[in-house]
Every structure is written in structure tokens, then in C-alpha cells.
Design a protein around this nucleic acid. Structure first.
Lengths: 203, 203, 203, 203
DNA sequence: GAATAAACGAGACGGTACGTCGCGTCTTTAC
DNA sequence: GTAAAGACGCGACGTACCGTCTCGTTTATTC
């Protein structure tokens, strides 16, 4: 009788899955060590102990590898505070985002943003990734609306996007460092705009 | 006898300048036609009718060519309105920025942002480019402060950056189209944040 | 009830045979259409609607496929004239050989000769194939000897080989076209050599 | 002052020529050591201590390398005997040809013949190569005609080709070894055919 | 008619070589 | 004597087949 994985197991355990893990792991390692520019298919294949053709069979290019990696990262979602105050919750959220941008994930996000400029597939993947995250984070804003801390016309996702925009601006345009002060200010500015009625749904 | 440019002319007219113009022009053409990815030194040299080594002698890489091109674009600065109302002036400014992002300049900016992720030189060039522009645009905010439309603690450049951030966010992260409505909203949000005291100098 | 082949049919009719025919047919088709260089196992398998592993299970390489094909071609042997004159019989034979070399079989023979340079298996198969054919054709020479048209010491097979040599020379070395005139000349030269005593058995 | 090659030197002495020699030499070595099948561009480049792209820049494929090698070999032409007897001269010539076919040159010729089946460029090169050689060898036949040893209508080149044909036949079709006896017989057969009038000019 | 052995279909995998492209350096040529 | 032309070393690209290897699914035979 052939061995069967027990039901409930998320991923198959065969050779294919072992290859996938080896490649993703090698991608993560090279990315952290040498940056996106040094991330070539050949090096990934070598580092993963896998044939180049095997990598190409399953991923189009390094951007595809990054998407695979991102899918894994997406599992570890940013935690959502619930302090009873929307101001406090968004401040904490902004700090969490800044924390996420630091370290390996930050480099990954940067590389993916750069890539998505030229690569529609990557762009679509990124859009989806952030849409989901923003939707999740918007829950905190909704709670604030329900508590009467924010006008009811406010578009929750729009607030989250307003919160994230300055962080991206710094990371991508001015390349200034991100810290908790910047994060707090971004949260405060988003809330101010929301209360001034500039982030309403039908605006 | 060697030809000499008449005094008073801004750029020298010799072979060197002719080469520079040919290269920049070829860069612009290839960029518009095939996008940044197709912008290789070899193709630029070919299109400019110039030896590859000549290009290398004066620009390090395609990013360098882009910077050269950007310097030309920088000449045509964004006009600054002076309607007597800071809200109106910033609204117009945001619309001008959106207009600037559309068309060839937008593609160029996108490419440069993507490049600056990996390339410190480009990053520095971009930083300088935008610092200058923002400084110029901040004049409108200063006028508003002087007229008492905004608190005196407001950091004028920070307001301009807050105005630009959502536009970049859309252009780079969500790849949504930019229009006048978005521009107006960005201006309003920045002003709201400024009036709420979240964009102050020593904040 | 399973279909059974009528007794006397040479080949079994099962799945195995269907596969064999599909593969041979695909080989013939690809060979005629795109030449030997384009004859890869993968393409043959695809064209035959058969799994690659199935082809590999039964044939070592494309040369093996060619041999299979040749075995089919070998069934249609070159007809042997019997006019009463060895000169006439060999002239007709040479023309038949030239005819055989034209068309698909010619391409196949060329490819097999080229292959046999590197591949001992193919070389052995070719040797056997031609030995059998030459042996058959030598009958005409023997008849000539019996009739006293040729010296009795003449080696019949050697005459056939002498007849074929110039045809191969043209086909392989000079790539000149083969026609009836060339064929007739080859036959005449072989006969002349035979009568001059240069194609004798113990020579 | 730039170094100049002394006049009369056949080949330039620059980098390009050094590369050429390294590649040809590596080709010869690999061919002799491992045979034509093991002759890949990559291995040649490695063995020559040269970049793969450099090889590709100047030769289309391994067949091109072989042609280059053949051009060098062509310099060392087969010597032409002049004993006063055409029979003897052709016998010696045939033996020389057999000698040429043995050793490295033989493997090279075999590989080129195989290649020329598929590759028109190689075919053309081979044709030219042999045309020149045959033309040279035909001188011996012409001398025989002048001495009255052969009929005046005989086509000298055709005799040479008739002489070579059986040698090729053995080498390519039957893969039998070539020796002096075979060579002598080939020469005798060609002469017999010539005297019988089957190798005449307007035949 | 069920059991079983063989052949098949499907396709991932580790490899090797292909031929191309662009980089940035270094020679050579020509003006 | 300088600058254009372009050969070169280098490294990665993405593709094509190679031949091997499971693994699950027919077929065909045998008991």
C-alpha cells in the first residue's frame, strides 16, 4: 500500500514540495545576504541544490520567486491592536508597519515595488497583497467609527492607505530612515485628514 | 582653425556638446518608445550614432543617462500659482504634479524611483531633485502661513511632502490612475494634517 | 470479446503494436518534414501521441527509430532485372538505386550514414542492411559470370560495391544530383573494372 | 611607436590572431582526444582559455571550427609522385590518401562529411576543398595522357574521383579498414574504367 | 472472472549545451 | 595623438532535449 499523507496536511510532502522549499529558502537567504540585484536564477538554483531548469519550470523569473516568498511572508500577518482608542490602535499599527519594513521584508518589498514598475504580474500580486492587508487593518478604523471617534462617512481603507503613503514616500523617494516618530506622525496625519472629511467614501 | 562658440551661449557648441545632445536625445527616444528596460548603453550608442566607449566615458550607466535627461526636464519647473488662498494654490499645485507624472516624465520618474532602490547615486540625484522642487513649492505654504491660513509652527516642506505622498503611493504601490480628483484630495488631506498640527517643525 | 487478429497476420494487433506504428509513422513524418536534425525523441513522442517514456522504453535514441523505419523500408526490396545481359541488368540496377536514393528514403539513408559515423550500432545496422541488399543484387553478376560475360574470378559482391561507390561519393561528398546518366556510367565503370581483373575474389 | 609585423608575414600578430590560434588548437586537441561528438563550443572555449561569446562571435558552430581546422590542414597538401608511370603514380596517390584518412585528419573528414549532410555551408566548404585537391591530383593523370598511357578523351578529374569513391565507400558505408591493398585496387579500378572509356570528358 | 504482470501516460527532475545579450575593459585602426 | 570601432572576458539569460525516475492507470494474459 502506498503511503498517503494524513488528511489535514496543508502541503504535499513529495519531491516537488521539497524542491519548492529549498528554492524559497535559498531565495530568502540570497536576498538577505546580497540583496535583490544579486538574486539570479542560477545562483538560487545552485544555492538550493536544484537544477536551473527546475527553477525555470516553476517560476518565470526572480520576481516570481519573490512573489512565492511574499506568499509565505503573508502568512505572518501584522497583528492588530484593540486598545479602545482608534488613535492608539493606528499609532501601534503604523509602528508595526515600520517594523515590518525594516529587516528582510523591507528589502523584499522594495525590490517588489521596483519590479512592479516594469512587471504587470508583480504589480498585480503586490496590489492584491496590500489590498488584503489594508482590508484587515481597516477593521481598527471601523471600530473607531462605531465608537464615534471618526465620522461615519470615513472610508476605512482610505485611512489605512493615507497612513501608509508617507511611509512609502520615505522608503522609496527620499530613502530616509523610518522610525516610531515618523510612524506616529503618519498615523496622526491620516486621522486628522479623516476627521477633516477628506477621506470619505464618496469623496 | 577650430570653431569657437560665440560668448554668451550657455552650452558649448563643439563636438562634445553635439555628442551630449545626440545621446540625451537618443535616450529620450528609446525611453519613450520601448521603456526603461530596453534602455541599454549599446542601443543608446547605436541610436545616437556614437561609439559605445564614448558613452561610457561620460556616463556610468543607464541611470546616469536618466539623470542627465532629468536635469533637462528639471529646467521646466512646475509653475507656482498665487491665488491668495493656500488651499487653492495647493490644489492647483497637486494637479500640476499629476500632470507632470503623466506622459513621458512619469515613466522616467517611475524608472528612476525603481532604479534608486538599488542605486545610491540615482537615489542621491532623486533626493536632490525633489528637495529642490519641494523647497520651491513650499513657498506657497509659507505665503499661507504669512496670511494666517495655517499655524505658524507648520513645516512648509513637510506639507508639500504630505501632499505628494499619496500620489506616489498610487503611482508606485497600487498603480491606480492619477486624476484631478485624487490630486485635490491629496491637497486637502495635507492641509487638514497641517491644521491639526501634525506637520509641525519640531514635531 | 477481445478482437483477435486472423491467423497468418505477421504482427500482433494489441496496444503495443499500435504504439509502435504510431511512433514509426511519426518518425517518418517528422523526418520528411523537417529533416533528421529536428528528429528528437520528445517531438516524436508528441507527434505520435505517446508518452516520452514509452519511446525510451523501446528505442535507445533517434538512430534506433531510424533503424526501425529502415526495417520497414527494407521490405520493399529493389527489383532485380533479368534481361539476359549483365551490362543491361546492372545499368537498370544502378538506375533503381538512384531512384531509391531520391525521395524520403534518400534522406533517411543520408541521415543514417551520418549517424553511423559516430554510432556503432547504427553502423552495424547499416552494414547488415547493405550486405543483404548487395548479396541479392550480386545474383545478376553471377548470372553474367555463368553466361561467360564476365571472368569467373570476379567477386560478384565486389562488383556491386564498385557500382554503388560512385553514387555514394556524389551523394555524400560532392552533393551532386544523381541521374540515369550517372547511374549508367557507374555500372559501366564497375563492369570495366571487373573485366580488367581488378575486382577478383582473391585480389 | 606601434609594433608592426614585418612584411611578408602571412597572419597579423594581434590579440585576434592569438585567440584564433588558441581556438583552433583546442579544437584539434579535443577532436583528437574525444572525437567530434564531444566537440562542443563550451568545451572548446574552456580549453582555449577564451570566452564562449568570443568563439560564437567568429564561428557559427562546431562545423565552422572544423572548417577552420581543415583550412589549416589544407596547407599540407598530399604530395604528388612522378615516377613516369600513371599506374604507379595513382597507386602511390591512393596510398597517400588512405594515409591521410588515417589519424586525426580522417576523423575530421568523417565528421565533416556527416555534418555536410545537414549543413549546406559545410557541404560547400567540403566541395571546394576536394575540388582543389582533385584538381591538383589530376595532374598525374594528365601526364599519363600526355605519355599516351591513357586515352586522350579521359577526364582527369573524373579519374581521381573514381579513385576516391571506393575509399569513401569503405570509410562511410561499410566502415571497413583502409589499407594499401584496398588503395591499390581502387587505383587499378579507376584506371581500368578510364581505359575502357567510361570516364571520358563528354561521356 | 479475478489476479497479476507488463506496458503505458504523465510529467517532475538533474543535467548539459545551446545561442543571445549586455556589461565594462582593452586593443587596434584610422583620421 | 586622440577617438571611433569593435574584439574580448565575463556572467546570466531563457530554451531545448537529454535520459532517469516515480507513480497511478490501463491492457492483456494467466490461473
Amino acid at each position: 500500500m502506498v503511503h498517503r499523507p494524513p488528511p489535514g496536511t496543508l502541503r504535499p510532502q513529495g519531491r516537488t514540495e521539497r524542491v519548492r522549499q529549498a528554492v524559497v529558502s535559498a531565495t530568502r537567504g540570497l536576498l538577505a545576504a546580497d540583496g535583490y540585484d544579486a538574486l539570479t536564477i542560477e545562483r538560487v538554483a545552485d544555492a538550493a541544490g536544484v537544477a536551473k531548469s527546475t527553477v525555470y519550470r516553476r517560476w518565470r523569473d526572480t520576481a516570481g520567486l519573490m512573489m512565492e516568498l511574499m506568499r509565505e511572508v503573508a502568512g505572518a500577518a501584522i497583528p492588530l491592536a484593540d486598545s479602545g482608542s482608534v488613535d492608539e490602535d493606528l499609532r501601534v499599527l503604523a509602528i508595526e508597519i515600520v517594523k515590518f519594513f525594516s529587516g528582510t521584508s523591507g528589502a523584499m518589498v522594495l525590490a517588489l515595488v521596483a519590479e512592479s514598475v516594469h512587471n504587470p504580474d508583480t504589480a498585480a500580486g503586490m496590489r492584491e497583497f496590500w489590498a488584503e492587508r489594508n482590508e484587515r487593518a481597516a477593521i481598527a478604523v471601523r471600530r473607531g467609527i462605531d465608537r464615534g471617534e471618526l465620522p461615519s462617512e470615513v472610508d476605512p481603507v482610505e485611512v489605512i492607505r493615507a497612513l501608509g503613503a508617507p511611509l512609502y514616500y520615505r522608503m522609496l523617494v527620499t530613502h530616509e530612515p523610518l522610525d516610531d516618530v515618523v510612524a506616529a506622525r503618519a498615523a496622526a496625519a491620516a486621522l486628522a485628514a479623516a476627521r477633516a472629511g477628506t477621506l470619505s467614501r464618496s469623496d
